[in-house]
Nucleic acid binder design. Structure first.
Lengths: 182, 182
DNA sequence: CGATGCATGTAAGCTGTTACATGATTGC
DNA sequence: GCAATCATGTAACAGCTTACATGCATCG
């Protein structure tokens, strides 16, 4: 059984949680995430769903008497197995280290900007990050542990991450202000 | 002037910092990052460098009398402008929110595992994360602020991020242990 | 003198993006 | 009645991965 990529794993997980669900509602769930990493474009999702179906990881059922032609997706036993393998595969150091933050990528190169531009950058980013942090906190508040524990914990992870990014960018701003002007 | 993608931006930044440098050394710098997100495969870098050159964002110079045929890359004025635009573009909420953590993706779906498997997962991940944290701290120690301030700050961001991930996964493990067994 | 690392690159294939296309349903 | 949203999909294109290919240099 082939190894799933990240988007496939996430989609299988969403289907398992919300089944029976349509590809369209799958897209909505992904879009609703505070992380904009999952763009969930039609051109990504529909071929992906077709792929999972030809490999018997999901099955689809056409609702007759539905004029819209909705297709309802369900995970198969094979799909569950592949999904569990996808979750567990995480122990590999490569996946642990595969984190990405476009803000941090840019910090390394800030000496390409003038001092004034650096301050502007750090200021703007801090403002936007604070807004983002608020969003993750609201998202968390909407997901109490009593409702779905792991949905809650996942959202908690998002909020913790946002908070640590704010903390880092406060330090960055302070360091830029402290720095002798060139 | 076209907008740069993330890999292009990072590569231009590395070239600007280390110029004149070869495409090969560029790959090595990317590989040396604790984040395995930048795989820096030959099939990615060489076409990318060619792209940047045809758009006059970099220039390359062949070292005659070098039997290996090294090509040395330098950023152009146009390149510097495009690079600064890439850095500043970050203010967009979409980029701020474009964070990604394959561990957190999986947390949302942990109820697909049995209680024993959940604990195993959280245990393994915590162990691997602690190792990763150590790596980021060593990376940080190698980059004192006196040497290159922003290189230091970027590495600091990586270490802070690793620490917050450890803190989150400690909470996750505790929550799983506290949870009534099913 | 053979393995490893330096250094360049290409080709096939997969996956994702953007943009388009079509039609049903709901809400104002 | 018209706009927005539901719902499915496709086509062109761009970018990355994996695997291959070539040759020079260095170290033991």
């Amino acid at each position: 059984m082939r190894k799933l990529n990240e988007l496939e794993g996430v989609c299988l997980g969403v289907i398992q949680k919300n089944q029976p669900c349509t590809a369209y509602s799958l897209r909505k769930v992904l879009k609703a995430s505070p992380s904009s990493h999952w763009r969930a474009s039609a051109g990504a999702i529909y071929p992906l769903v077709a792929r999972l179906e030809t490999e018997d990881l999901i099955v689809s059922e056409d609702d007759e008497e539905d004029q819209r032609g909705r297709k309802y997706l369900k995970i198969t036993a094979r799909g569950k197995k592949a999904f569990k393998a996808w979750i567990k595969e995480i122990t590999s150091p490569d996946l642990i280290a595969d984190v990405y933050d476009p803000l941090r990528s840019r910090v390394f190169f800030l000496d390409a900007l003038s001092n004034a531009e650096q301050q502007r950058f750090a200021d703007d980013v801090l403002g936007a990050l604070n807004q983002y942090k608020k969003i993750t906190e609201e998202h968390l508040a909407d997901r109490p542990p009593s409702d779905d524990l792991f949905e809650h914990l996942g959202a908690l992870g998002g909020a913790i991450n946002a908070e640590s990014r704010v903390a880092f960018h406060k330090k960055l701003l302070a360091a830029i202000r402290r720095k002798p002007k060139t």
